[in-house]
Amino acid sequence: MTPSASSGSDALIVASGLSKRFESLIAVDGVEFEVRRGEVFGFLGPNGAGKTSTMRMIGCTSPRTSGELRVMGMDPATHASEIKARLGVVPQADNLDIELTVRENLEMYARYFDVPRDTAAERIDELIDFVQLRDKATSKVDPLSGGMKRRLTIARALVNRPDLILLDEPTTGLDPQARHLVWERLYRLKQSGVTLVITTHYMDEAEQLCDRLVVMDKAKIVAEGSPRQLIERYSTREVLELRLTDPARKKLAASLDGLAERAEWLPDRVLLYTPSGDTALASIHERGIETDSALVRRATLEDVFLTITGRSLIE
């Protein structure tokens, strides 16, 4: 019996003080998180933050340097095969077998997981429909579009009916239709009780899919919570976006008091973080400041992300 059977808790992944070092570079620095059964858990963060490195440690394809990690109650250092048997992995870059057809890719992968042949055949049929690749089932992988390859990679991650799926940027590079299709499929998986861990650079994706998420920056976790909690904690309810002439900009800067909790001065716009955008806009007009255009919108995860990780690109 696997050790997981004895773990009564609902946490599918538990990490504490988890670190990964590549020679002198610290890719993951003492992170702590818990992924619960049945939830969609997200990793956000700028390029190089350590998301993929963390995912790979969970997926048992990169040994941790230090700290504790349990996946489905087991230690990746000692139970890699057992963990991987119950895991589905969608890597950041597709690594499909381009010498095989769509169907053969799934058949071979099912074999690696010891799925009995009859079960596999049936399941693969379902999966091909699930990711809408019926027309392409006998075609080679190479000529498929990026979106089709991505869907096939997702189907491949499902051949062993995993309890936990790791998706590293599942929709990067896809067109809006393909992204929506993937989202919808991931949502269905969640509904069927599968736990999903996902990394993404799309804040709308994170907001739609994730029950809880962490923001990583420079190898550390810098924020954690549900999308709504994060928005409440790091932003106001609304954002007023203004486009102003230079004199109006100066005037606003001089009389900002009481208008907003925080203002952000971008080259082309000014963002005012405020509980009510309309009220703020009214007071701006009262103060005689003319606006070229004004937009009141709800704060999004993107505002949170940029607030936490900063607007400038640090490479």
Partner: peptide
């Protein structure tokens, strides 16, 4: 180039 092994190590194969 094709990274077949990367896909293989993600499965129970060692």
């Amino acid at each position: 180039w094709q990274r077949n092994y990367e896909a293989l190590v993600a499965s129970p194969l060692s």
